[in-house]
Structures are given as C-alpha cells and as structure tokens.
Design a protein around this nucleic acid. Sequence first.
DNA 1: TCAGTTAAAGGGCAAATGCTCAATCACAGA
DNA 2: TCTGTGATTGAGCATTTGCCCTTTAACTGA
Lengths: 306, 306
Amino acid sequence: MDLAAKAGWYYYINGDTQDAIARKLQVSRQAAQRLVALAVSEKLIKFRLDHPIAECVALTEALRDRFRLDYADVTPDDGPDVRHGLGVAAAAYLEQLLASQAPIVLGFGTGRTLRAAVEELTPINRPQHRILSLVGNMTGDGRASPFDVAVRLADRTGAQCYPMPTPVVAGSIAEKELLLTQRSVETVRNLATQAKAFVVGVGQVCWNAPIQADGFLDEAEVGELLDAGAVGELISWPFDADGAWIKSGIVDRLMGTRPQAPPASPTIAVAGGPDKTQAIRAALHGGLLTGLITDKATAETLLKGA
Amino acid sequence: MDLAAKAGWYYYINGDTQDAIARKLQVSRQAAQRLVALAVSEKLIKFRLDHPIAECVALTEALRDRFRLDYADVTPDDGPDVRHGLGVAAAAYLEQLLASQAPIVLGFGTGRTLRAAVEELTPINRPQHRILSLVGNMTGDGRASPFDVAVRLADRTGAQCYPMPTPVVAGSIAEKELLLTQRSVETVRNLATQAKAFVVGVGQVCWNAPIQADGFLDEAEVGELLDAGAVGELISWPFDADGAWIKSGIVDRLMGTRPQAPPASPTIAVAGGPDKTQAIRAALHGGLLTGLITDKATAETLLKGA
DNA sequence: TCAGTTAAAGGGCAAATGCTCAATCACAGA
DNA sequence: TCTGTGATTGAGCATTTGCCCTTTAACTGA
C-alpha cells in the first residue's frame, strides 16, 4: 500500500513513466503498472477538476447513460437567458456538422431555441450542403413563420434550402393530399430520408404553448391533442407522457414526415427550461432522440425525476 | 479551455480513453490528446495524494525532532522537477490555512517554489482574508517580479491583497526612509505584525543565485553579502551559516521587516533541492523557521549533516 | 488582392500502457 | 514430504498515448 502511494505520487505528481517508477522502486515494469492502478482504485491518489464545467460534464455523462444517447451536452446556466446558452452550444454542434466537406443533407425543426442557435453560428460558406425544413413553415393564414430555421441557416451558409412551403397542419386530409402532390413538398419529404442528421426543438403541448401562440394550431386543435394525452411535440408530431405518438385527427393532416422511433438518423434536440422539462422527459423515454443539448437545471430535473 | 476541462474530466475522473473522449467531444483523437495535455499543463485538473508514506513520515518526524519544528512535511519527490512536488505539498498546506472562516492575515515571500504552490491551489473564495507581500515585489528597474506570490494568491482566493510596491532593497537609506512614509508600505508593514503565519521560500546566496539572476541584487551587492558570510536569505534578509543575521550596508536598505528569531508567528519555509540545502540548514540552525516543507533528498541531507 | 507569417489539424510512428495468460511461488492439509 | 489451491509474477501482445512533421487554414500587412 505504501508502495502504491509512492507509485501514484511518482506517476501523477512527479510525471514519471511506469518504467522509471519500476526502477526507483526496484520492481518490474508490470508491478509498477499494478501499483499505479491500485493507487487509483484505492483512491490514494485523487483527481480534482476545479472548473465550473465539471458539474455539467458529469450531468452530460449521466444523461447519456440514462437515456442511451449518442450525443449530449449540458450548458452551465448562468444568467437568466437559458436560450442564449443553449444557442451557443447548439451552434457549436451545428458547426461540427457543417464543417463537413462532403455534401450532406440536414433536416431542421423550428422554434425560438433553434433560431437562437443559428444566430450564434459563425459565418461559414457551405454551398454543397442541403438544408431541409421538416415542418411546414407557414401559419394557417399564409404567413411565413418568423422562427423558421432552415431558410435562415441556408442564408447564412450559402447552402441549398428546401423549405416546406405549407402550413404545419393541412386544413383537411384532402388538402394534405393536394399539397403532397406539389413538387417542392415531395422533394423535401424525399430528401428527409437521406438526412445525415435532424436538429429539432421539443415543444410542450399545453394551453398557450408556443405551437398555439404562434398560430400553428388553434384552440380546438390544442384541446384535441390534450384530450388525447399529448404533452409535447417533435417537429409537430405530438406524443404522450411515455413518448408514444398520439393518434388523433390532427396527426393525419400533419405535413411533415413522422420521425421514426427509434430514429433512423441522428436526431438531436435542443431544448431546455422548466416549461419544457416534461415534454423532454417524455421524448427521451420514448426513445425519440439520439442526442440532447440542454441546460444544467433541466438536466438535473430530468435525471432526478427519471 | 472549456473543452480542455471536459477532456480532463472524462480522462481522469471518468476513466475514458482519449479515443472515447474524441468521439464524445466530436474532435479528432489528436485534438483530444492535446486537450487532455492542456488540462494538465494549465492545472485545470489537479492530483492529490492522500496517504502518508512511511518513509517520508519517518523523515518528517526526524526533522521535527531535530530542529524543533511545529510543522514539517517531506515529499517523496525524486525527479528533476523538485519544485512541482513541493508545490503540491505546499498547496495542501495553504488550503488548510485558507480554509479558516475567521479572517486571517497571511504573509508571503516570493520565489519560484511558492509560485508553483499557488498555481496548484484549488480555487477557493476567501474574501475575508488578507494576503501580504513581505518583500518588495519590484525589481531594481521598476518591473514587477514575475514570481510575486501575494498578488497571484489574492487573485485566486478573492482575498484582500497588500503588496509592497517597492524594490526589495532601496537604492539608499534616504530612499528607504522616503518609501517607508508611503501609506501602502506602512500598512503592509503594520499588518505583518498581525500575521497568523508567514509562508516563505529560502534563497541561497551565491554567484548567480536567483536573487541576483532575477535582478533584485546586482553583482556588487551579492559580493558584499558573500564577504559578510551570507549563505542564504529569508524574505530578503541574509543570514550566515549559523543562521545569524548578517550585518551589512545592504540590510539597512531592505524594505521588508526582518523576521524575528525565534519567530513570533508560525514561519513555514517551502524549499528543497541540493542547491538550497546549505541555506536551509543554516536557517534551521538559527531557529528562523517553525515549519519546513521539503523533499526527501534534502531532508536526508539535512539530517545527515546536522 | 496577395504574399508572408503563424497557428492549428491530422497522419503516422515510436514509446508507454493495460491486459491476458502461463509459470511460479507460498502455504495448508494429508 | 507431497500435493492441491490460490495468489502473484512477469513475458508477450494489443491498445493507447505522446509527439514529430507535413498539410491546411487563418490572419496580417503591404
């Protein structure tokens, strides 16, 4: 034990190689290796990371484990504006994706958080990529959504943009059928199957949720979803507290393609804040996501309740 | 920097390979390696050994007995970089001092070893404490010493800092008198009498000793001290081989207050290495110290020769 | 705009490390 | 004394890590 402590000191504090330690301690190289390992496993030597990020990394790891995610990131939430912090983190992730020289297809949801992420992007020229809207970007009355992400992102990167120039939800099944015959709608829905990744928000479904306030759904429609047990939505597709897709008249009129569960392509959600916690938890439970970028407080709540 | 902290966390605390870290952080394997190295070199990640090593404990006891010390610590250090090991041990001691909730006054010397100790310190917020420079922290030509410890320590702890904004040694007695009338100099000298502890280095006095190389003394001054029998210095005050203060023209121009012998407050020296052994031995003989943090090799030499 | 300079990224390789496994050793019980 | 049991050791090998060096990107000043 004494030897192990010494070996630990030499290795971690003095910076010796295990070979050098073996010589100093007059043991074989392998024995030195075992001693160093022992010092660590017996906690004779302690590692400390003195950095505010340490806690976030721990949460990141916990999220990844608990919800079997491929990618996770937790932002330290200092400051009142959660969305800004998330935006920066999401922008960093997006930059990774966009850095690819080979042409890729990326699908995007909508929302304020994603919009913030795009605003944080450092300008980069990537005309080879294709950016898709996964959600209709018109409100019911024909206005373009101010939170459409694909157009803005394509604008900033010079990428080719494939918006979905329809409402989120068609007025009727007949209207949906009609819209589906449009060349542009067909194209974007086809391209979605080739997407390298989907970057989406998570919306809560409740009275006066953004999806209603922004005019994508009216009061009756929100009521219908709530009656069916919806707690959240992913690129407009509503799900219940277990993350199972809701069956309802509305979903038959949704213009986007439904995400697969489990996802066929990496599906990264950018979402945080107390209002969204329940929806995020449900989406995670349902295995609808492969990645999550969230803030520290939300991560803690997700892990506590789960 | 954030990334480096994350990498350090994953590598040392989570035990991931650099490959796994690269995947999690979405960077190349080499980049992950650099990040881990950076986390270590920037001291984001710290190592602490929590185990008394028998051999060193014996030396510690022997030192304490032989030189009537209140505190002693011996590091197992054996490599070329004695300073780093001493720094870790000294940092552990400092953390203990700083942990005090009650406001305390701490006096500090200068030097590379102490500086290393401060760099090893875990950030801790202690605005209630007061940190003093016991030595002028300007070189002769008005530059700030890069090895000033008080400022850096106060910076890391949020403590109130009282530097001594003068050269180590005034150009003349008249200049010293003038400087002593400065409010800041007066304050720091007064506070020194209330110090809970002094943490100091031990400097050797010889040709090209740090005290000369760093521009605190010129060649003529070093010569004068050597002629007077100086072998070492404690917060700039030179002493001979028996640890008795040197009388010389220079000492009348020193800006710091002379340490009392025996010390009125706990006076802990952090020093080691073959070059300094003679100076340390002299300081111990003269009873100038109440504590010593040194390395194994130095401790052995001190005990053998004494 | 473009050449010159500097920093960063990645390929590749040698050194360091971790791990498996067969050989050896210590020891208890017949 | 012999033998079985289990722990310990070090050889050998696969993986991981550190580092050099070339390539690439970014930036600066004319």
